[in-house]
C-alpha cells in the first residue's frame, strides 16, 4: 500500500499546475492513484478520442500501479473463490467444540471460532460468497438500472418523470435501511440479500445511464440514425449505450465494493447468509461476544472484507481516471 503512495511522490513532477500534469495520460495514471477528483480545466485537444478507447484505457490503467495491483489481487480473489474447496485445510462448516476459540497456530493459521471451526478455511470459503453476491447484486442493479435509465433518458417526457421520481423515492431511504426493510419482507437468506442489495442500488445506475443518454442523444449521428429509420431499441442498444459503457463499467466496479460491504453488513446483522455457511459479515456478527476473550475471531474476516473492498475501490478509481480525468465521484 505504501508502495504506490511512494511512487506517486517520486514520479510526479512537483512543479507546475494540475492541468499540466493531466496533459500526459501516462503521468496522470500515476498522479491520481488515490482517485482524487481531478481538476477540470485542461486542454481538450490533448484528449482527442483515441481509436480504441479500451486499448487507451488499458494503457492508462497499466500505468496506475495501485489499480494494477488491485486488479491482480482481484484476479487472485476470483481464483480463491473458484478453487476454494481445494484450498481449505479443514471443512469450513465442520464444528469441533473441543478445539473452540483456539488462537492462531500451525494447525489453525487464523485460529478457530466459538464453534471450533477453522477460521482460515472459513475466510477462504467466504470469498466465494462475497464475490458472488457482489457480482450478482451489481448485475441485477445494472441490468434494471440500464433499462430504466435508457428508457427514461431516451423517451423523456412523462415516462422520464415517472421513472426518475420512483428512483428519487428509493434514494430517499438510506440504502442499508431500505435493504434490511426489504429483507424483512423477503425473509432471511443469501439469495434474498442479493435481491435486496441489487434493488437498492438500481437508482444509481439509472441516473448515470439517463444522464449519459441525455447528452449522447444530442449527437448528430443519433439524429442520422433516426433519419435512416432505425428502430428506437436498435438506436439505444447499438448506438447510444456503447458510448456510455465505459462510465457504467467504472460505476459497476465501485458498485461491487459497496455491494460487498452491504452483504457483510446484512450478514453482521444476522440477515444474510444463514449458518453454518461461511460469510465474512456473519462470522463477525456471531463472534462479537468474544471480542475480549478471543479477538482473533474478529480480525481476519474483517481484514478480508476491507482488502476486497479496497481492491475494487482502487480498481474503480483507476478505471475512472484512465477513462476520463474529469470524471467526478458519483
Amino acid at each position: 500500500m505504501s508502495e504506490w503512495n511512494q511512487s506517486s511522490l517520486d514520479e510526479v513532477p512537483t512543479m507546475g499546475s494540475e492541468s499540466q500534469k493531466a496533459d500526459e495520460t501516462f503521468a496522470m495514471g500515476i498522479a491520481l492513484p488515490d482517485g482524487e477528483i481531478p481538476v477540470p480545466d485542461y486542454d481538450e485537444t490533448l484528449h482527442e478520442k483515441p481509436e480504441n478507447q479500451w486499448l487507451e484505457m488499458w494503457r492508462s490503467l497499466r500505468a496506475n500501479r495501485a489499480a494494477l495491483v488491485s486488479l491482480i489481487f482481484i484476479v487472485f480473489l476470483v481464483l480463491v473463490a473458484i478453487l476454494g474447496p481445494y484450498l481449505t485445510p479443514y471443512n469450513p462448516i465442520e464444528t469441533d467444540m473441543s478445539s473452540a476459540l483456539q488462537t492462531p497456530s500451525a494447525q489453525h493459521w487464523f485460529g478457530t471460532d466459538q464453534l471450533g471451526m477453522d477460521i482460515f478455511s472459513r475466510v477462504i470459503a467466504g470469498t466465494r460468497v462475497s464475490l458472488t453476491v457482489g457480482l450478482l447484486a451489481v448485475s441485477i442493479a445494472l441490468t434494471t438500472g440500464i433499462i430504466l435509465g435508457a428508457i427514461a433518458g431516451y423517451a423523456g417526457g412523462w415516462v422520464d418523470t415517472v421513472i426518475m421520481r420512483v428512483m428519487d423515492m428509493m434514494l430517499a431511504i438510506p440504502s442499508i435501511l431500505l435493504a434490511i426493510t426489504l429483507m424483512a419482507a423477503l425473509g432471511k437468506g443469501i439469495d434474498k440479500a442479493v435481491i435486496a442489495i441489487g434493488l437498492v442500488s438500481i437508482p444509481e445506475y439509472a441516473r448515470i445511464v439517463r444522464g449519459n443518454i441525455l447528452s449522447i442523444k444530442e449527437n448528430d449521428y443519433i439524429a442520422a440514425a433516426h433519419v435512416v429509420g432505425l428502430s428506437d431499441a436498435r438506436i439505444i442498444f447499438r448506438h447510444v449505450l456503447p458510448n456510455a459503457l465505459s462510465v457504467i463499467i467504472v460505476r459497476a466496479t465501485l458498485g461491487i465494493s459497496s455491494a460487498i460491504l452491504d452483504t457483510a453488513a446484512l450478514g453482521f446483522l444476522g440477515l444474510g447468509v444463514q449458518p453454518p455457511q461461511p460469510e465474512w459479515g456473519d462470522m463477525l456478527g456471531r463472534a462479537r461476544g468474544f471480542i475480549f476473550q478471543a479477538p482473533h475471531t474478529l480480525l481476519y474476516p474483517g481484514m478480508a472484507i476491507t482488502a476486497t473492498v479496497l481492491a475494487f475501490n482502487l480498481l474503480g478509481d483507476g478505471l475512472r481516471d484512465a477513462l476520463d480525468p474529469r470524471a467526478r465521484i458519483k
Partner: peptide
C-alpha cells in the same frame, strides 16, 4: 489519500469492533 481510501473501504461495524 490513504486515509480517505481506507475510510471508504472499511466496514464501519468492523471498525467499531
Amino acid at each position: 489519500s490513504l486515509f480517505a481510501l481506507v475510510g471508504v473501504s472499511i466496514p464501519i461495524f468492523w471498525l467499531g469492533i
